[in-house]
Design a protein around this nucleic acid. Structure first.
Lengths: 217, 217
DNA sequence: CCTTTCCGTACCGAACGTCGGTATGTAAAA
DNA sequence: TTTTACATACCGACGTTCGGTACGGAAAGG
């Protein structure tokens, strides 16, 4: 294949193919050769020119997966017209209403046999998303009086872990009914922390999402 | 090496060596040859006679890890002298007071680079421990009036996920201070569900555990 | 302004070492 | 004599390396 004038396109191509294959077959069951075969003429050398290892590709893939989500979190975090509690509510609403969620479902991902990818996401949730996005919001909530807790760091972790991991139907595949029940327990947990941020509109959307996922299986 | 009259000893040896290496270097960075090298004369044939694959060894290792814990859970679950809530309280007390916990810490395990092992444990927690041990107890608690919830299955999952994964210092390594704070948030969460099962004795023991783990690093 | 030189970089693909797994042999136990 | 518990030689697939090629653009020379 001829040399590409815009190497970033090649990088993107590799990442797109890798993402799809990692989702479909799992990271460990996707070989470098598998990726090459779906690259349309590119070779092993091309991959190792742009990435230093297979693991390096995984990291880039997960970065891409979380980038959009993190961007949304940053925007909400930096708004000045909302209390801490309102920001949390906005985040949960955004995270279940964005069409991106529907897109990702169509890949029919299988985290069930993808420990590496799951772990990468888990790590990102606790080490990046929780301290950089949720924590500042909770701290603001403490200042403005809309949230009460003595342990903001831990609360941020627990909430994100429950929301991003436990309630994620890609990780623990749940029926529509189960997803709904998880969300109810989740909202009950938030209420226990004095956070009343779940409304009927959210519940409606959640049932819709769960039904989309069920149909794609 | 001559044929062993008691093959179970060979199996045990393999599992012990594998457990130690998986913990020290991670499952993926432990090769079959690594295990053989620590077996004292045994060969590849021995391993593949007793286990059908490397993954099979991992499953056996995690089974061994959870077996003792599950045994404890079964005993408490089947007692007839406690209410559901009292059983939950007993479980948490046992899980932080048994000396086994101290033992496992001395291996200085590294879940941080062990996605496969972590996932195996995660799977076991949600698919085995939650429905088989915690759920019956919560259901009993609903019957005897000591626990109130509309969603016992999901509550069982969330509680175990928080306790076994989030609060597990092997998975998310926490300082003594952080472990303590996690436990406080955890107990606050349980209170939010109407479960008041944490007492001062528990807090004391937890601080002790955290300090043991810190020193072994 | 055009041409030639030169170098950086995108990409190629054979080869290598390691790995998990298998086939077959053998000796002891039953 | 059959079955079990191992040993040994070997296989194919894998991730990674590396010497090499081809292309493009900048700079130098005309």
């Amino acid at each position: 294949m001829a040399r590409n004038k815009h190497p970033e396109e090649t990088v993107n191509l590799i990442l797109e193919v890798a993402f799809r294959l990692f989702m479909e077959k799992g990271y460990e069951h996707t070989s470098i050769q598998d990726i090459i075969d779906h690259l349309g003429g590119l070779s092993k050398g091309a991959i190792y020119h742009h990435f230093k290892s297979k693991e390096d590709i995984l990291i880039a893939v997960t970065d891409r997966m979380t980038a959009e989500s993190n961007q949304m979190l940053a925007v909400i975090r930096d708004r000045t017209d909302l209390t801490g509690r309102e920001k949390l509510k906005t985040i949960f609403w955004e995270s279940i209403s964005r069409p991106v969620q529907d897109d990702i479902f169509t890949v029919a991902p299988d985290f069930h046999n993808n420990p590496k990818l799951l772990f990468s996401l888990l790590h990102d949730t606790i080490e990046e998303a929780a301290p950089n996005y949720i924590l500042p919001i909770i701290k603001q909530g403490i200042s403005d009086g809309s949230i009460e807790t003595d342990y903001p760091e831990q609360l941020a972790e627990l909430i994100l872990l429950a929301a991003n991991v436990w309630m994620n139907p890609m990780i623990f595949d749940s029926s529509e009914e189960e997803s709904y029940r998880k969300f109810m327990v989740f909202s009950q947990m938030l209420q226990g922390f004095g956070l009343d941020i779940v409304d009927s509109e959210m519940l409606e959307r959640l049932q819709e999402l769960a039904s989309i996922y069920q149909k794609s299986k």
